[in-house]
Design a binder for these strands. Structure first.
Length: 152
DNA sequence: GCCAACGTTGGC
DNA sequence: GCCAACGTTGGC
């Protein structure tokens, strides 16, 4: 069992959107970074806990709790010329980009960055490190517990 | 809109 | 395989 923080732009898929989706489940399309892809491919397991994070918006922060509900499989948007995530170099026989299905479990109060920074147990969170841009990052058991406590 | 930080690209 | 140039991310 492992924990993750996954960034989503709420303009595209917010925690509300995910909760409103069939089975509260969304395919995590659009990851175009090899490190993030490799996390999904190599380390994510069904049942892993996910902090659903809103990024690139007016109020960035943790907005909900979710879980991984599938293994990694090819992201169909890489083959779709009409998609903003289209990758002309990706081949059907040899997909470059993968995704997992994520099930939203609940919306939480918004845990803003400033609040995360203020918490000693979260000072090493990858998301808070300077220059961090990774859209999927591992979360330690201690960080997960601290976040759950803040939300309790 | 700014800009620091980082990843990717491509010429050599 | 180096590395400068470029594009993107994402908080502010």
């Amino acid at each position: 069992m492992q924990y993750w923080l996954m960034k989503s732009e709420p303009d595209e898929v917010s925690i509300d959107d995910a909760l409103a989706a069939p089975a509260s489940t969304v395919a995590w399309t659009g990851v175009r970074n090899y490190q993030a892809r490799n996390f999904m491919r190599d380390r994510m397991k069904v049942g892993d806990g996910v902090l659903f994070y809103h990024s690139s918006c007016a109020e960035p922060g943790i907005a909900g709790i979710a879980e991984v509900v599938s293994g990694a499989y090819p992201d169909p948007t890489q083959f779709d010329p009409a998609s903003p995530y289209y990758d002309p170099k990706a081949k059907q026989e040899e997909p470059r980009w993968l995704l997992v299905d994520v099930r939203a479990m609940r919306k939480t109060r918004l845990l803003k960055i400033a609040e995360l920074r203020a918490h000693p147990a979260l000072s090493d969170m990858v998301i808070l490190r300077k220059g961090n841009r990774l859209s999927i990052t591992p979360v330690t058991q201690g960080e997960w517990d601290a976040v759950r406590e803040l939300l309790a």
